[in-house]
Write a protein that binds this DNA or RNA. Structure first.
Lengths: 217, 217
DNA sequence: TTGAAATGTGAATGTCTGTTCATTATAATG
DNA sequence: CATTATAATGAACAGACATTCACATTTCAA
């Protein structure tokens, strides 16, 4: 990303755009696309409704920009992984933890993401296909490579459909974040760190829940 | 449910109500609460908008009735399970398959359910708490009992938080149904029966993805 | 300090859609 | 068939909200 050809003016404008995106992300995340009004966003950003239109052509433009922004981020995220051929399982653990951390840092977006995944909001196929799908593919390629290595090293069973396993992991990541975000059930004061959640998930995934032959693990 | 104290009139009225619920479920499922208009529902049900108001007080009343209806169904579903103390794992497999079948039979509702779970639509807490939560609890109690037995019989590891495992299973059920409903990725012609999906999920869950000591399972 | 360009503002506008209701059609009854 | 009760209809109404725009405020170079 060429950065220094921007004048101060331009940089300021960009920053203000990102402020709006941030505020909007929070609103969309909390309420969903339709329940979130332009006034909500304006209030969250401490500006007037009209101002929003100085930066974006409309509500769905804002919505799409949020996805585009994170699409880029996710691609960078995928590209940032280095493969440690000695320890593919460690890499997988790393990957999962980083995904969880990203989710925690961007709650608003994650909620938008999950909702959109469930086809909600204005069902704009292109939004999904253009911004997020390619990034998702990149990320899954990374996992895929780790698993290829793990199978090669006979750490992971060779008889499984790895794409399925990856899909399970992806959904599990959302499940964990889900449980952090929602508090449907405040009676369970399940205080678990992201690391612990990750470890639990990997324990079950790799070792299974069956007792081992002798006693148990 | 006392059934025969209803006159023919009343039964007809009830049937027409259920017709509307069915049509509405399809629309809400396809489009989500806000994108689905009363006219959509009327069209789907082949009647006029005004007619809907002869049976329901408004749009959200219809929405809530759908949840209430399925809440009842889910409670019956939970109550219908008989515990085979000899084979808890078989029971678990049965449970999962039946859940998948129910999901396939009620796609519209399932999509509504997932959306609502993600806090979308008109965020009416009471709807969730009153109709679905109790039913969900009942269903999870069934699974819980199966697992208690399985642990007792030393089939399943005793060192795991079973509630977590159940949560994983529940989400996996949605994941599988999700993949059946959506076709984001039409290149994968992954033709898998519900049984196969269930078996895959249980294989991974019980045995894990790691290679066994000698070779593999 | 000044004036012109950029940015901010919120009341006014138009559209979309849930709801109502006067009217028409259908069914039930004797 | 005549009469009454019940249900269906869709045009009209009302409110919510995205968008616009005329005007106010700020910024900043000269």
């Amino acid at each position: 990303m060429g950065k220094e050809q921007l004048s101060r003016k331009e940089r300021e404008k960009l920053r203000r755009k990102e402020d709006i995106l941030w505020a909007a992300q929070k609103c969309f995340g909390d309420k969903g696309y339709h329940e979130c009004t332009m006034e909500d966003i304006a209030k969250e950003n401490e500006c007037s409704v009209g101002s929003l239109y100085n930066f974006f052509s409309g509500k769905d433009h804002i919505y799409k920009e949020i996805f585009a922004w994170h699409g880029e981020r996710m691609k960078e995220f995928a590209a940032s992984f280095v493969i440690d051929t000695e320890d593919p399982v460690g890499c997988i653990g790393d990957y999962i933890l980083k995904r969880l951390e990203y989710g925690m840092e961007h709650q608003g977006f994650l909620k938008m993401f999950i909702r959109n995944h469930n086809n909600d909001n204005f069902a704009d196929e292109s939004l999904w296909k253009e911004s997020i799908w390619p990034a998702k593919v990149e990320m899954e390629k990374v996992l895929s490579e780790f698993f290829r290595l793990a199978v090669e090293k006979k750490i992971v069973r060779a008889d499984l459909d790895i794409e399925m396993v990856i899909s399970m992991i992806e959904h599990n990541i959302f499940r964990i974040l889900d449980e952090y975000f929602h508090n449907f059930c405040p009676d369970k004061t399940r205080e678990m760190s992201l690391e612990e959640s990750r470890d639990f998930m990997m324990d079950v995934l790799f070792n299974g829940i069956s007792c081992r032959d002798k006693n148990d693990k």
